[in-house]
Amino acid sequence: MNDRSVSAEAPRRNFILELWSCLLGGIAALFPFLTGVAVFLDPLRRGAKAGQARFLRVATLDAVPDDGLPRQFPVIRDATDAWNYSPNERVGAVYLRRMPGESQVKAFNVVCPHAGCFVGFDAQGRFFQCPCHTSSFTLDGEVIRPSPSPRGMDPLEVRVTDEGAIEVAFVNYYPGKEARIEKN
């Protein structure tokens, strides 16, 4: 601006002075920003709530006919969503499948192991079909090649109680990876 008016005697810029300016100004400017970053990164220190029941009741044995076809059931458990805590919230879904004459039940997480879409069941073709990137899976959850999915559908541990309730150990895995890594 009025550079010309600055007298030639203007003091030589002192390196120490500049250093202090940068340092103090930097602290003042960065402190609020870093506080914000700390808050922003809060989700990183939050894991799953301890004490969640591993096996969750999702259906009764009668509700899964032994015809070998998968049926969809919601998974219900107590859920915490930031400030909200709600008992008995729907937190996901599973496919349950029972072979003829067996009381053994197979369970798959409905989430596609490719990119996390909700996999559908193609009743005509009798296979699982993801609506997003055309991954498909056999009724046993195996990948039908060619497929963008790195692995088959995620099987879940199942147990049937004496009273005939089907309980599933509900887990979500990170999609897009060959190995199954639990999300928590």
Binding site: S5, W20, G25
Partner: peptide, 20 residues
């Protein structure tokens, strides 16, 4: 004598901001 904004005034400003 006149001075430039940098660094003399900037330092004073920085100290004041830090005080705030």
């Amino acid at each position: 004598p006149d001075q430039y904004f940098w660094p003399d005034q900037v330092l004073r400003d920085a100290v004041a901001c830090l005080a705030v």
